[in-house]
């Protein structure tokens, strides 16, 4: 499978994503510069974490206007798989490919630590290998990861099965204490209505090897790979 990992000025997790896709999972992955106008022959696009354009103005606010995001939007509209991680999630929200917004953590502080995630419906390209309710241990690292949307949007997300990952405790219970940033409904990640675009704040690429103390994150990439290969 061919992955394209976007590279904006200020992307930090671009190489980490390429490392996991290529060296850990054995697929092809290349960096795609923000000035490019096409995603080329990519089967899927990863919008990685970092501080694109220094987070100036507002996280993701400038990246959405880059050349490459126009190409990614077109790719997504045609049903292409797109996953945004951390800053990538913020960019996808800014670009309107995903509903809602990520605002400042309730604690006002940047937070870096492992959290527990409860996986939502398994009928998406990002969760198909993880039965609903699977609990994953994956780290977060963000200052603006509090998911926010109006009540109607939230209702729609729930009804359509678009909430793919929620912060939970070790047993999978979704509760306030397990929420590291104040996200509404403990939302860690969602997908769009067509279920081909997803975004999440936690970093699956940092939890894809045992030496980094968790390989739970691999299941997200492996789901995308399985979905694509079955297609």
């Amino acid at each position: 499978m061919n992955f394209a990992v976007l590279q904006f000025p200020g992307s930090n997790c671009d190489q980490d994503c390429v490392h996991v896709l290529k060296n850990v999972l054995g697929h092809s992955a290349r960096l795609l510069w923000h000035k490019e106008n096409s995603v080329g022959d990519a089967d899927a696009v990863i919008v990685p974490g970092g501080f694109s354009y220094g987070d100036y103005l507002r996280t993701g606010a400038i990246a959405r206007y880059s050349n490459v995001m126009a190409a990614v939007t077109e790719f997504a509209n045609q049903g292409g798989l797109v996953m945004g991680i951390c800053n990538g999630f913020q960019i996808l929200c800014e670009a309107g490919l995903l509903p809602g917004a990520l605002i400042r953590n309730r604690s006002i502080k940047f937070r870096c630590e492992f959290v527990w995630l409860r996986t939502g419906p398994a009928n998406t390209p990002f969760t198909c290998k993880a039965p609903e309710g699977t609990v994953l241990r994956i780290p977060i690292a963000h200052g603006e990861g509090c998911y926010f949307a109006d009540p109607e949007t939230l209702k729609k997300l729930e009804a359509n099965g678009q909430i793919l990952w929620r912060y939970c405790d070790e047993q999978g219970k979704v509760e306030a204490e397990a929420n590291p940033n104040g996200s509404l409904l403990n939302i860690a990640g969602i997908c769009n209505e067509k279920k081909n675009v997803a975004g999440l704040m936690p970093h699956p690429e940092r939890a894809s090897e045992d030496i980094l103390s968790s390989s739970d994150g691999r299941i997200l990439f492996e789901s995308m790979i399985q979905w694509h290969c079955k297609k």
Binding site: N12, Q15, K109, F110, C112, E113, H203, R206, I211, L212
Partner: peptide, 29 residues
């Protein structure tokens, strides 16, 4: 303190803050 620092970016942090010394992995990239 250290939860405010990103201590895992670059996929090399093998022993993170909280033990006697930190260990980082050097790989090709």
């Amino acid at each position: 303190v250290y939860r405010q620092y990103d201590h895992q970016v670059r996929d090399g942090s093998v022993v993170c803050p909280g033990s006697d010394a930190a260990v980082v992995r050097i790989k090709a990239d």
